[in-house]
């Protein structure tokens, strides 16, 4: 199946980014396609490459970038990003900034849209 993922919450403060990642890993291992991962609301903070967590902790933005490197479309909402100081300069590799039209496309093209947030 084709799954679209919407992430509405930032990293670390809540578990949403971890749950989404675990879900996506399991979905890929079960042979599904991830049509796109769309970051909205505070979710856009997931996409800053300036993240530098302690070495014994997971690096959440790197996880997303690694999924992007596998060819999964990682999209950060431009309006939500502007509001929160996320732009191309701080964007993780293998992600792109675009509009809510992309979320619409994901919603149309996917068999399921699953939202992680708080």
């Amino acid at each position: 199946m084709k799954f679209g993922i919407l992430i509405q919450d930032g990293p670390y403060n809540h578990e949403a980014a971890d749950s989404a990642y675990n879900f996506i890993q399991a979905a890929l291992e079960r042979g599904h396609t991830i049509q796109g991962i769309f970051f909205y609301n505070d979710g856009v903070i997931n996409a800053t490459k300036l993240m530098e967590p302690p070495q014994d902790d997971r690096n959440i933005s790197k996880r997303w970038s690694d999924l992007g490197a596998k060819g999964i479309d990682i999209i950060v909402c431009v309006a939500a990003a502007k509001r929160r100081g996320i732009n191309e300069d701080v964007l993780i590799p293998n992600a792109r900034i675009s509009g809510l039209g992309q979320l619409t496309e994901i919603a149309i093209e996917s068999d399921r849209l699953i939202t992680f947030g708080s």
Partner: peptide, 19 residues
């Protein structure tokens, strides 16, 4: 259950999250 089971449920159903 684990996340594979979560995914298996999503295969069968659309999802609404009660945040």
């Amino acid at each position: 259950c684990d996340y594979y089971c979560f995914v298996a449920l999503v295969e069968q159903h659309k999802v609404y999250p009660w945040f």
